[in-house]
């Protein structure tokens, strides 16, 4: 009997040992010198966590910040990146940047949109309408590649949800409970602030590649898009890369998750209801079972 029991306990101990050894071994891949690129980005630094107005259970977007972010998108990023899933009218939706209908109409009319064919069978250009999706600078992917040294700038609509990073064990469990769901935004801020020129000597770059701290593999085909003072802020907000990057990342978080405010608001009501309901059921259950010995 005690023999079997100690067999069980040793199985437990061996199991623990295996896991710990494996984790330690795997943290240091044998043939990747520090700082060198490895295929899966094990040693990549984790972008610092930022404070976001839209984080947490009561989070809401900061309208002024979304409007500044849109300005950066329009003046800088849209030169290369598309925004296929967002229509002009969305800019006036509740829970968004809060442009007025008039502003959206005027804004849309600033863009040329391809339409047609008309009665004579010709395609033509017309001023944009609020229902149009934001058009792209390039007619197709290959044109964008050709202008960017062969690299395709990804569509930005859901970019903030399409990027992330691993914080490793045990954070991937803890993050669910501390509601750390803004990794995409932190990553974008990281990328925009992560350029280093010249790169560390251990990294060889091809022409058209730039060194970036936070890019997995550190090689990025996007030249540093933002510099201090590049975009005007009429409201006196500091015109620094740090500020720009937070504003554009907030804007991209909204384009990726336009129903975030509605979701969190609904969530609060559901939670309050469920907790009250659980409380009532708990006392009902106690009452019902009171005279049963169990």
């Amino acid at each position: 009997m005690p023999l079997l029991k100690s067999a069980g306990l040793s199985a437990a101990a061996i199991f623990g040992g295996v896991l710990i050894t494996a984790t330690v071994l795997a943290q240091q891949p044998p043939h990747a010198p520090a700082n060198e690129v490895n295929s899966d980005g094990h040693n990549d630094p984790v972008p610092p966590r930022q404070a976001w107005s839209f984080a947490g259970p009561f989070g809401k977007f900061d309208q002024a910040q979304l409007q500044r972010g849109f300005k950066i998108y329009r003046e800088v990023c849209s030169n290369c990146h598309s925004m296929e899933l967002v229509a002009f009218r969305n800019l006036a939706d509740p829970g968004g940047p809060g442009f007025s209908e008039g502003q959206v109409k005027a804004l849309a009319a600033d863009y040329k949109v391809k339409d047609g064919p008309n009665e004579s069978g010709e395609m033509f250009e017309r001023p944009g309408r609020p229902s149009d999706h934001i058009p792209w600078n390039f007619p197709n992917d290959n044109a964008a590649r050709a202008a960017n040294g062969g690299a395709l700038p990804p569509d930005m609509s859901v970019l903030a949800k399409a990027r992330g990073f691993s914080r490793g064990f045990p954070w991937f469990i803890i993050d669910a409970f501390i509601q750390y769901q803004e990794k995409g935004a932190d990553y974008i801020v990281g990328i925009l602030n992560g350029y280093k020129d010249p790169p560390p000597p251990s990294v060889q770059l091809q022409p058209g590649q730039y060194y970036n701290e936070y890019m997995p593999g550190h090689r990025l085909a996007m030249p540093k898009p933002l510099n201090d003072g590049q975009v005007d802020y009429p409201d006196g907000t500091p015109t620094t890369v740090q500020q720009y990057s937070k504003d554009i990342a907030a804007f991209l978080s909204w384009t990726a998750e336009p129903k975030l405010e509605e979701r969190k608001r609904t969530g609060l009501r559901v939670m309050v209801f469920l907790i009250l309901f659980a409380g009532l059921l708990y006392y009902t259950k106690k009452k019902v079972w009171a005279e049963v010995v169990h």
């Binding site: 949800k161 399409a162 993050d175 769901q181 559901v270 939670m271 469920l274 659980a278 009902t284």
Partner: peptide, 26 residues
């Protein structure tokens, strides 16, 4: 019923507060 409602609280936590955390960014 009591047990289920407690489970719904967990479910709602994921749906309303961290809906993407179990998925893959890719």
């Amino acid at each position: 019923a009591f047990g289920m409602v407690c489970f719904f609280i967990l479910f709602a936590w994921f749906v309303f507060y961290v809906p993407g955390i179990l998925g893959d960014a890719d």
